[in-house]
Amino acid sequence: MDEGSPAVDPAALLEQARGALDAAYVPYSEYTVGAAVLTEDGSVFTGCNIENANYSNSLHAEEVAVGSAVRAGHRSIVGVAVSSGARDGVTPCGMCRQTLAEFGDEDIPVYCDEGDGEWTEHRLGELIPDTITPEMLGVDPTERAAGDDAAGE
Rank of each mutant, 00 (worst) to 15 (best):
I77T: 05
T120G: 06
T131L: 00
G89W: 08
D107G: 10
L21P: 05
G67I: 03
N54A: 12
A23R: 12
A53K: 11
G104W: 12
E30S: 13
A145K: 08
A81K: 00
D140M: 08
L127N: 13
G34R: 01
A24N: 03
D2H: 08
L38H: 03
D22W: 00
Y55L: 00
E143G: 06
N57S: 09
N57G: 01
G104R: 10
G147H: 11
D2T: 03
V82Y: 02
E30P: 01
N52D: 15
P109E: 08
A145N: 01
N49F: 00
G117T: 02
R87E: 13
D41E: 15
E63K: 01
A35M: 07
E102T: 09
I77W: 09
E114R: 15
E62R: 02
L59E: 04
Y31E: 13
S83C: 09
A36H: 05
G152A: 11
V64S: 08
E114N: 10
I132H: 09
V139G: 00
G94D: 07
H60C: 02
C112F: 04
T120E: 11
G67L: 03
G19R: 06
P92I: 08
A146T: 12
D2P: 05
T32S: 09
I50D: 11
A53R: 11
P141V: 06
G19A: 07
E3D: 14
D130H: 10
Y111D: 05
A35S: 15
L137E: 11
L21Y: 05
T133Q: 12
A7K: 11
R18Q: 15
T142K: 14
N52L: 01
L13E: 07
E3Q: 12
M136G: 08
V110I: 07
R18E: 14
G67K: 02
M1D: 08
T99G: 04
P134R: 08
V139T: 03
G138V: 12
T39W: 12
A12Q: 08
R123H: 13
E106S: 05
V70W: 03
P6T: 07
G115E: 11
E30Q: 15
Y111W: 04
V82C: 14
R123L: 09
A72C: 06
Y31L: 10
I108R: 04
P92L: 10
A61E: 06
A146M: 09
I128E: 13
R123F: 02
